[in-house]
């Protein structure tokens, strides 16, 4: 097992080189960035129009919802930027190309995931941060060290959940030949992440908390900042859950990879 420092140093080098090469295709880089920002902004617009007609949704005000939305955008950035290669996994597996990731003396998951850095996610990050700051200001939330630290920890935990969900969805291609729809379906769930889980019926609330834990992506962590008085007990554990869930997804991915190479050409 190689040391963590070794992987971090290699990861940093790969990402710097990858971003450099992507930026050299300037128009491609700028257009994809603008495209991502436009998508996010148009969703913000939909929010705004909705709240022109309803003063609140299940007791959540416009600015609280904005906060939640911004939070989910930032929390999804690591998935978009760092784990985007998962989307190509099933093609590599399907035509046998995945084998090439098995010949290097490094972790296969790391080698595969580190190969691509998706710069589109950066646009999403800036829109998300902007929205959080705006909502923060409008909600008159205190700017304290504890609050900022809580926000960072909450964002970190939240992003782990979405990454883990997509890892598992991507790994399904090791077991099923036609697994594309699983990724698409799972990806759709992230749209639900930006609403407070309380607006869903109890059945879905349980699913989104325990089975496909998207409630941890924005809802539970945001409560820490927005409504510290009414946090469910579960919330305090979300960073731990996040790490455990990510680890489980990593094991499933690696298990699939070892199973894949066992099936021959």
């Amino acid at each position: 097992m190689k040391r963590l420092g070794f992987y971090i140093s290699i990861y940093r080098k790969i990402i710097i080189q990858d971003i450099k090469s992507k930026m050299s295709y300037r128009s491609d880089f700028i257009i994809s960035m603008i495209g991502m920002i436009l998508t996010d902004v148009s969703e913000l617009l939909a929010f705004y129009i909705m709240f022109l007609n309803f003063p609140s949704v299940c007791g959540w005000s416009y600015h609280e919802m904005l906060f939640l939305y911004g939070f989910s955008l930032v929390a999804l950035t690591p998935l978009q930027c760092l784990f985007d290669n998962n989307w190509h996994l099933r093609h590599y597996v399907y035509d046998g190309e995945f084998i090439k990731y098995c010949f290097r003396p490094i972790n296969v998951f790391f080698y595969y995931i580190s190969e691509d850095f998706d710069t589109k996610g950066l646009g999403q990050f800036f829109v998300g941060m902007g929205t959080i700051v705006y909502a923060w200001y409008k909600l008159d939330l205190p700017v304290t060290f504890v609050n900022i630290a809580a926000l960072i920890v909450a964002l970190f935990a939240a992003s782990l959940f979405m990454v883990a969900i997509m890892n598992i969805a991507a790994a399904s291609c090791f077991f099923l030949t036609n697994s594309g729809y699983i990724m698409v379906t799972m990806n759709k769930f992230r749209d639900y992440a930006k609403y407070p889980v309380t607006i869903f019926p109890i059945f879905f609330r349980i699913i989104f908390t325990f089975i496909i834990p998207i409630a941890f992506i924005a809802y539970f962590p945001s409560l820490v900042i927005l409504r510290p008085a009414e946090i469910p007990f579960l919330t305090w554990f979300s960073p731990v859950y996040g790490i455990i869930f990510f680890y489980i997804s990593y094991r499933i991915w690696m298990w699939g990879a070892s199973k894949y190479s066992g099936t021959g050409s």
Binding site: I14, Q17, D18, S21, K22, E97, I99, K100, F103, R104, E115
Partner: peptide, 12 residues
Amino acid sequence: FGQRSQLWWSLP
């Protein structure tokens, strides 16, 4: 391995 390049596709 065959025609599958193991080098980083976008890097010099």
